[in-house]
Design a protein around this nucleic acid. Sequence first.
DNA 1: CAGAATCCTTTACGATACTG
DNA 2: CAGTATCGTAAAGGATTCTG
Lengths: 129, 129
Amino acid sequence: MARDPAARPGPRQIDFLADCRARLGFDLLANTWSSVTLWALRDGPLRHGQLKESLGGIRTKVLTETLRRLEFNGLLRREERAGPTRVDYELTDLGRSLLGPIEAVGVWSQQYGDEVLAAQDRAETRAAG
Amino acid sequence: MARDPAARPGPRQIDFLADCRARLGFDLLANTWSSVTLWALRDGPLRHGQLKESLGGIRTKVLTETLRRLEFNGLLRREERAGPTRVDYELTDLGRSLLGPIEAVGVWSQQYGDEVLAAQDRAETRAAG
DNA sequence: CAGAATCCTTTACGATACTG
DNA sequence: CAGTATCGTAAAGGATTCTG
């Protein structure tokens, strides 16, 4: 989504529904690995292999796709350093500016994650019982 | 993702990579309509038709799926009110607690959305030219 | 090491038609 | 009004193999 050039111009506060621009960030993060990948790079550049290790179960192909997409959107930079087969990925300023919102979701998850799981259990019990 | 019962127990600060629980929120929001749907309900209950109108191009089926998923995860509540074929959807406390992080992403989008679009243009120009 | 290539499965999303 | 049913497409993700 997030396409509507003729969106209403006057946002009083934040109106996601009148200003599709406000949905752009969600589109950027609306897949399994984007947020975590950005987060993994918060302390500095990492290489493909290091990222793969940090991110757990991610597959080579999926990691490459994720990195390409994040690069396309200006959130990180791919840099071939000296030495053979040595490639670093690092956040751009734009990517770094997203760490705050990402952290907000992460903090929420840690605070309320148990409640979500409990709700899921309740829903499943209700459906099964 | 976000499944790993044997995750390391000692999170110093916020370590998404050592604590998969912290990724739960991203999983909840990792689709096109979840965030916007929750946001649309911030001012109070809405009915199916009202939501559909608010959310723009969403299809009946997709809206129903989105609502079911959000309900399953305890973020909103489906309530059949008095009167025939009258159903309200309203945020739970848990769902309401997610409005903050959602807003953080929305604010970021409004601040930096243009930069993302510019980066996309640059990437496309570089690829085409 | 950093990936590209290939194949497969699942899921999301969209479009249309129909119903209690 | 609030869906359900069905069909189709596309994208995401996973698994495996191969390469400069």
